[in-house]
């Protein structure tokens, strides 16, 4: 009979299930035996990433998880109200390797669009230099089967303050995306970069979690 157990994984309490065979004679439990938990693989804050920087690349990621979940919050010093949050896998900037479909919600309007044969993946927006002070964008990216040749579809959801003044219509947006990287190589690194300017200190943090199968 599996036993439910709450564990602190990467600062987040997660519920796992322990079976008898996962516990040794000293009552030690192997973390890899706990199903359904998130493992924090990398965190810009823990790693000591220094700002400002125009792009951030992860170290080589372990290939032992069922999927990756990226949680990000960011702000750019680009001379605009907002900038795109863009991503590449394995540093691949080849035109034609990236496609995405998005919905963007601003105020009371919804727009949809696609970008075909691009050279990176759009994952939402972040507040930039002329946007509201102390505001950010943030979102999540799911990359199932990142270590296999059969995954490819990436889903993203994000929200951002994209205007200069909160409380005015259209000052924030929400985006939902599905993107595809057409290559079959395992994803070993992820590069994040704003569409203009640099990620700035105090408002930018990226965390990459491994999801156990």
């Amino acid at each position: 009979m599996p036993t439910p157990l709450w564990l602190n994984r990467g600062g987040v309490l997660r519920r796992g299930f322990i079976q008898d065979q996962d516990v040794d004679s000293n009552a030690n439990i192997q973390a890899s035996k706990i199903a359904g938990v998130y493992t924090l693989l990398w965190d810009t804050q823990d790693a000591g990433v220094q700002f400002p920087v125009a792009s951030i690349t992860t170290p080589t990621l372990p290939q032992t998880y069922a999927g990756l979940h990226v949680v990000w919050t960011a702000r750019s010093d680009g001379a605009a109200n907002s900038e795109n949050m863009l991503v590449r896998f394995n540093g691949d900037s080849t035109s034609g390797h990236w496609n995405w479909e998005f919905n963007r919600f601003v105020g009371t309007s919804v727009s949809a669009g696609e970008s075909l044969n691009n050279n990176c993946l759009y994952c939402g927006d972040m507040t930039a230099a002329t946007g509201e002070a102390n505001a950010t964008g943030g979102g999540q990216i799911w990359i199932p089967g990142y270590s296999t040749s059969t995954r490819q579809l990436v889903t993203c959801i994000a929200g951002a303050v994209v205007g200069a003044n909160s409380g005015t219509t259209g000052f924030m947006n929400v985006t939902t995306n599905a993107g595809r990287w057409s290559q079959s190589a395992p994803i070993t690194t992820i590069t994040f970069f704003p569409g203009g300017g640099n990620f700035v200190q105090g408002f930018t943090r990226i965390q990459v979690y491994g999801i156990d199968g």
Partner: peptide, 21 residues
């Protein structure tokens, strides 16, 4: 512009570096 990335040192160990493009 500066970038933040990982590069291997002489022992093949990945190290975080911040350097000019």
């Amino acid at each position: 512009p500066m970038i933040s990335t990982y590069e291997q040192d002489e022992n093949g160990v990945e190290r975080l570096v911040r350097r000019e493009m």
